[in-house]
Nucleic acid binder design. Sequence first.
DNA 1: CTAATTTGACCCAC
DNA 2: GTGGGTCAAATTAG
Length: 300
Amino acid sequence: MDSCSWPEGSPSCRSKAIKELIQLPESSYCVEDQALEMFGNTLSFMSSYSVNKVSKIPINNIRSSNCLDDRKAIAKDKMVKTVKNSRGCYIRKRSWTSTKVTSLIDDGHVWRKYGQKEIINAKHKRNYYRCTHKFDQGCQATKQVQQTEHEPTKYKITYNRHHTCNNFLSTPQMIYDSINLEDTSILLSFESNGLVDKEQVGSHFPSYMHDKSKEALSFSELTDNQPLLFDFSLPSNLIVSDHSAHSLMSTRLAHGDVISKEVYSPIFEMDQIFETIDYSENPFDLAHCELISLNYSYNV
DNA sequence: CTAATTTGACCCAC
DNA sequence: GTGGGTCAAATTAG
């Protein structure tokens, strides 16, 4: 049902990202380092293929211009960079897109409708939305929503480009996937106000090492309108504020990996990563992973 | 008054 | 030339 286009050359990046995400901890590392390293590597792999790099949109100029010449100039500048294929034909090189069919339109972001079109051979009009923070934060994310023909209650939603804004409003800072506070998981949040209060949760985390099954990294996909979350089982002494997360992350990436501003909110890439995972082949028992979700939404 | 939506026109890849 | 994506003025909603 869902589909996604990974940019060219991405398969190896994707597999690297997946590998990194499903890698089990090794005893020689402290777990928080591993978690952060996996985050860092995954984000790095994703940033390395992000074709937002070819986007040349002059954000600050868009609104200020009124005359036709300016508009043309901007339109030209905004053109998606084109490349020729082997036959010499121009192919449109698009930034990241993801399509899904869902009955829930609300995805937690704030969208502004900017267009509506009759689509040939389609019963319903297609609606065009851009991120509300296009101008104040330069967020280039857009989405298209079209009612499906055969299932009127469902909508085909196509997302274009990543959110670079810092307003994922309806996403809770901490989401309990399968609420079991006897579990050993710890929450990590890189959101600005996602500081975990150790006093609140610490007592719920018995010794991490006592349950080997909790060493595993697990994933869980929530409902259609929520970002995909993934879970780590981590020792209870790991409490990371946004500030320390940033510095730790920076430390882990100091060897050359860069957290690009193009991967502020890698929700949809992660979504696709997880879609490709064959859970049956993962070397850990998901049935034992009743973990508290980690919101990986990472904003620089 | 400000922000959001509507809608016709413009632009460009195909 | 056409279809689809975007712009921006006009209109509507809060």
